[in-house]
Design a protein around this nucleic acid. Structure first.
Lengths: 246, 246
DNA sequence: CTGCTCATGTAAAGGTCGTTCACATGAGCT
DNA sequence: AGCTCATGTGAACGACCTTTACATGAGCAG
């Protein structure tokens, strides 16, 4: 009956050695499986092979664990977005679209983090460290928007970068939470979430005056981009961002 | 100690008379207060003045109550969107924008419903009635998009209405869940969620080729709109949807 | 090496929930 | 008046969250 517990103990001794980390990993797995609501502190403890009270040596309560995961999530999120943005290389629009894709990829590949970050009900503004991490992640989008705003073709009014950033964020989050995760992904769509978001962003950018069917770099103030390997692979298909209309 | 319970009983007798409805109302209040995750079946029962076991005569389990609320939410949601759309009166673009506003208004004024519908983890596709209600609500947006798509100015390719509808939905949901509710609303924004969404949709529509700084009706195939009372009140401010750029 | 200390883990217990079951009540029909 | 069945009750079970008093042993001082 309890041989398992005894064995565990024999394996690791009375002290776990790295319980905090083990709990975080266990929680991550459980959240990915059953969602932040279904995750239980007791389960995480069991999975780490310790008693139900042990976690309280490392987290004030269940919410603090959740909050820690959310914070870690924002940090990884920032890293991913940052890598995707790559400081706007090879050109601003390409990099910008890459950021959008990275957003969805993160939501899809790290459902546990995304869940903890945006769907767990953790009050972001209650924990300063969490809030800071969240803002650092958003700042990537904001910085990208800033660079993009600076490229508005002459003759068109320049949109506020902050507004653009919020718009892009809302599109990405909207697509991610409605169509790109869990059961929501089962809604029958005419196109993939990635394509949906890409088209949405392109149409939006066009609405701001960006020429989206060709690289805008040549006519802006931007230095000429590195010639891409795939000549027009990431361009917009003819007929508009959504393919050919019937 | 128990005089309260006795008094309750004296007031209403052994049978409650309308427990199902009372439970739904109680749950709605609790969800609005503490979120769908914090809401408990036992609390709802207490609030209705019955024992913890009574609710099981009306709902298979806690999830079914939540699911019922979500369904009711979608029904009210549909009604609101439908009223806002008003079959495209006085003209398609105006009505379309009104739908966007109605979306946010619903999210703000009915946080409990919105929460149950989109943030409670209720699997929409598990309950046919719920799924149907959800689809009916979405169909309002879809129908509006269809009418709008039919108005694309000559010379511009016509976007698929379904795609438009999904785009609009994702924008509205993104803005609503990121900026328009609960603690999330505390993020410091340069503009209100309503304005943010309105600008976003307008830029998007412009990206599709719609002239958004004036009523597009005159040049489309649409019959001339009823002359509005406020001549250009709902039009777009000069300089673009976001006001004057610096 | 000895012995102390304190971070880390355990067991036990109290409170809340969700859920089930046998039983009680009484509204409405015959 | 009596029956029946929908509706509500109380008790009980197991799971969870959290606290408290106690146990263990790693690391350090002497």
């Amino acid at each position: 009956m309890s041989w398992r517990k005894e064995q565990r103990r024999a394996e690791r001794g009375y002290h776990h050695g790295n319980l905090k980390e083990a709990l975080l990993q266990a929680a991550l797995g459980l959240i990915a499986e059953k969602g932040a609501a279904g995750f239980t502190f007791a389960d995480a403890a069991r999975m780490a092979g310790v008693s139900a009270a042990a976690p309280y040596r490392h987290f004030r309560d269940r919410d603090e664990l959740l909050s820690s995961i959310a914070q870690r999530g924002f940090e990884q999120f920032e890293a991913r977005l940052s890598a995707a943005w790559d400081d706007g290389r090879p050109d601003t629009v390409t990099a910008f679209e890459r950021v959008g894709k990275a957003y969805l990829t993160f939501a899809r590949e790290e459902p546990a983090f995304y869940n903890a970050m945006f769907e767990s009900g953790v009050p972001v503004d209650a924990n300063p460290a969490l809030q800071a991490a969240s803002e650092r992640a958003f700042n990537i989008i904001r910085a990208a928007a800033e660079r993009l705003a600076a490229l508005t073709p002459p003759g068109t009014p320049r949109p506020p970068a902050m507004m653009m950033a919020l718009h892009i964020w809302s599109m990405a989050h909207g697509v991610a939470s409605l169509f790109s995760r869990g059961d929501a992904a089962r809604r029958k769509l005419p196109m993939s979430p990635d394509e949906l978001l890409e088209a949405e962003v392109l149409i939006y950018l066009r609405g701001l005056g960006f020429p989206t069917d060709r690289r805008p770099a040549a006519r802006g103030a931007e230095p000429p981009p590195v010639p891409p390997e795939a000549p027009s692979g990431s361009g917009v298909p003819p007929g508009g961002p959504w393919g050919k209309p019937k």
